[in-house]
Structures are given as structure tokens and as C-alpha cells.
């Protein structure tokens, strides 16, 4: 039952984008005036319909399967969760189908089933309660390749953080398949900043960080990035980013890490919530 729920979440994410992402892409088309930006967004929107009608993956890069697990201490089936994730990934690779994306870096051998050393990527959190929540992210290679880490001097402050994110966007240019969702992780440490950044790309669009200073920074960064004019797929236009999400952690006195992670417009995510008896519901947030 756990495997089935996870399989369905993977399949749903591969074939249908979350409603908020679809809506943001439609809104982007409204804003654009340049013919190339418009034709790019129109093709993206037609592709979403084609994928859903034909039951095909939205994008051929079905990503590195990435899971964020919130495991309830009392969840009765906790011993099977890891195995369920692995078998759901293998089954989805065969049946959806997904592209096999797990390659041995030394031999370049593709494992063929999206599993391997460290793949799928699974982040575990043990939480109170007796349920289980599994968030799935299909992370494409093009957008992962533009991830960036800046270890700033703390004296650089907010302007330094802004400069780092703008720099990451300029370096990324057309490569991550814009319009992107930009995730920024501030503080923590090198690995924690990047982890927070990637997790931030999964926050539903249109939501702001509860901290008003951070929320204002998100809005400012969104406006600044889009003002650069790189547009959809880097052909020029008003929408490079659908949104910017910033998360923060306390920092070491000597460090100001800024992690930047981007997700392509095909922001494929799903959440599956299991009740204590193992029954489940698939949600999009």
C-alpha cells in the first residue's frame, strides 16, 4: 500500500504539473508581449495539455527522484518505507515510463532503473504522530546544473545576498529551462544552505516567507531577476522566474552561506499523505 501510494505520486508528478505552476505559466503568457516569449509559453502550455491527454511525462528528463519523508514516530509501517520508495521508483521507471537517470560516474554505466548509490535521494525527518508524509520532487539535470553556493562574508549583508542571487541567475541564463522557480537558502552552512534552497523551490507559488523582511526580499528579488529581461527559455521577455522563495537558518558568526537552487518550469512535485492504517491521499502542495 505504501509502495502504491508513492508510485501514484511519482506518476502524477511526471504527467501533470501542480495547479499553481500551471496557473503561473498562464499568467506569464498574459504578461509577455514579445513573439518569441509568447510562442515559447504557448508551446509549454500546449505541451501540458498533450502530456495529460496522452498520459505522457511532461518532460523527457523525468529527473533524479528526490524524496522528503516526514515519518511519524508511531507509523506502524515504518520498517517498509525505504523499500517501498525503491520499488515504487523502479516500477515507475518501467511503467510511466521514466527515463533511467542514475549513472555510475566512473564507468558511465546507467543502472537502468533510477536506483543506485544515493539514488533515489531520500531526506528523512522523524516527526511526532502516527502518519507518514512523502514529498516527491523530480529534479531535472539542466536546472540542477546551475545550482550555486556563495560563502559570503557576513558584512555583505542583505545586498550581498541579493547580488549572489542575481549572479546565479545571470550565470544560469537559458540553461535551467526558464521560467524557473528560484530557491534561496541563507545560513546554516554550505550543505544546509543548498538543501534549504532546493526545498524552497517546492513551496507553493504565491506563498511568502512568514518573516516580513524575508518576504520583502523575495518580492524584490523576483522583480530584479525578471527586470534583467532574459525571459522564457532565455529568448528575451519579462518572465525568467515564476517566483523566488527564500528560507533561512541561523549561521555561524564567521559565515553567511547563500545556496541557490532552481527548478525548471516543469516543477514536478507531489505529496502523498498516509494515515496510520496505510490508506493515503495524493496532494499537490
Amino acid at each position: 500500500m505504501v509502495e502504491e501510494g508513492i508510485y501514484r505520486a511519482i506518476r502524477r508528478a511526471a504527467i501533470r504539473l501542480p495547479f499553481d505552476v500551471q496557473k503561473a505559466l498562464e499568467d506569464a503568457l498574459e504578461r509577455e508581449t514579445s513573439p518569441m516569449a509568447r510562442s515559447t509559453l504557448e508551446a509549454i502550455l500546449r505541451n501540458l495539455r498533450a502530456a495529460e491527454e496522452r498520459g505522457l511525462p511532461v518532460c523527457q528528463d523525468t529527473g533524479t527522484p528526490t524524496f522528503y519523508v516526514e515519518l511519524g514516530e508511531g507509523f506502524s509501517l515504518k520498517a517498509v518505507v525505504r523499500e517501498a520508495i525503491l520499488s515504487a521508483v523502479k516500477r515507475a521507471t518501467e511503467e510511466v515510463p521514466l527515463r533511467p537517470n542514475a549513472v555510475n560516474p566512473w564507468t558511465n554505466e546507467n543502472s537502468g532503473d533510477n536506483t543506485g548509490r544515493g539514488v533515489p535521494i531520500i531526506h528523512w525527518d522523524v516527526v511526532e504522530g502516527d502518519g507518514l508524509r512523502v514529498r516527491y520532487l523530480a529534479k531535472g539535470g539542466g536546472s540542477e546544473n546551475v545550482s550555486a553556493l556563495y560563502m559570503l562574508s557576513p558584512s555583505r549583508g542583505i545586498a550581498g545576498i541579493e547580488r549572489a542571487v542575481i549572479d546565479a541567475a545571470l550565470r544560469a541564463g537559458p540553461k535551467p529551462c526558464p521560467p524557473v522557480i528560484v530557491g534561496v537558502g541563507v545560513g546554516g552552512g554550505a550543505d544546509a544552505a543548498l538543501k534549504a534552497a532546493k526545498r524552497a523551490t517546492m513551496r507553493p507559488l504565491g506563498t511568502r516567507n512568514p518573516d516580513p523582511v524575508v518576504a520583502e526580499l523575495e518580492e524584490r528579488l523576483l522583480e530584479e531577476i525578471n527586470s534583467l529581461g532574459m525571459g522564457p527559455m532565455g529568448l528575451g521577455g519579462r518572465t525568467y522566474a515564476l517566483d523566488v522563495h527564500v528560507e533561512w537558518l541561523h549561521r555561524h558568526p564567521a559565515s553567511l552561506p547563500v545556496g541557490v537552487s532552481m527548478t525548471c518550469w516543469a516543477a514536478r512535485r507531489a505529496l502523498v499523505e498516509f494515515r496510520p492504517d496505510g490508506s493515503y491521499e495524493i496532494l499537490e502542495p
Binding site: T40, L56, V58, C59
Partner: peptide, 12 residues
Amino acid sequence: QHPGGVSALAVA
């Protein structure tokens, strides 16, 4: 350029 990610349409 083929629009990035526009995969299902290309399959058609």
C-alpha cells in the same frame, strides 16, 4: 531551439 521540456508535444 525546441522549447525546453516540451516533450509530450514533440512525441506527437
